[in-house]
């Protein structure tokens, strides 16, 4: 067990996502054939199985589909973080993703909260997409 927060394992498929995050961009794949937006990254479009995909920058806005406030740290790296918010966010482009919602009192969390992307710096130069309440 480590005190460091977990880091993603980067592959050829996911590298543009993590490189985008390092530059402050939330990247999505978009199918060139059927235009479906895709998250998490994969080598094909899950709607039409085309392997012809583009990378596009998402607007970085969405709404909270659901969330939980965690009180018991699951492992050591989160011991100093509780209570923290774990959420599923539906992006304006369509895909859903998991993230933490930062910059909010846990008691103020609610379903359907509008959020916008922010980036959390971790070890090894990784930037992890996160969300905070959208103020506009």
């Amino acid at each position: 067990m480590s005190r460091e927060k977990p880091l993603p394992h980067v592959t050829e498929t996911t590298r543009p996502y993590w490189e985008g995050a390092r530059l402050g961009k939330l990247m999505l794949q978009r199918c060139r054939r059927c235009r479906t937006a895709i998250h998490y990254p994969r080598p094909w479009c899950s709607a039409c199985w085309s392997t012809d995909l583009d990378w596009v920058e998402a607007a970085g806005r969405g709404r909270v589909v659901t969330f939980t406030v965690v009180h018991q740290p699951p492992f050591e790296a989160y011991a100093g973080d509780v209570p923290y918010v774990l959420a599923v966010v539906k992006l304006d482009e369509g895909p859903q993703m998991m993230a933490n919602v930062l910059g909010i009192e846990p008691a103020a969390m609610r379903v359907d909260l509008p959020v916008r992307v922010v980036f959390e710096r971790r070890s090894g130069g990784f930037c992890v997409p996160q969300f905070e309440p959208a103020r506009d």
Partner: peptide, 22 residues
């Protein structure tokens, strides 16, 4: 998902709690 969920401090009770909240 090891790269797109686990990095956010997901664990079993929290993942089920997502269903309960909604």
């Amino acid at each position: 998902h090891p790269d797109f969920e686990f990095i956010y401090g997901s664990f079993i009770p929290a993942l089920y709690a997502l269903a309960a909240t909604r």
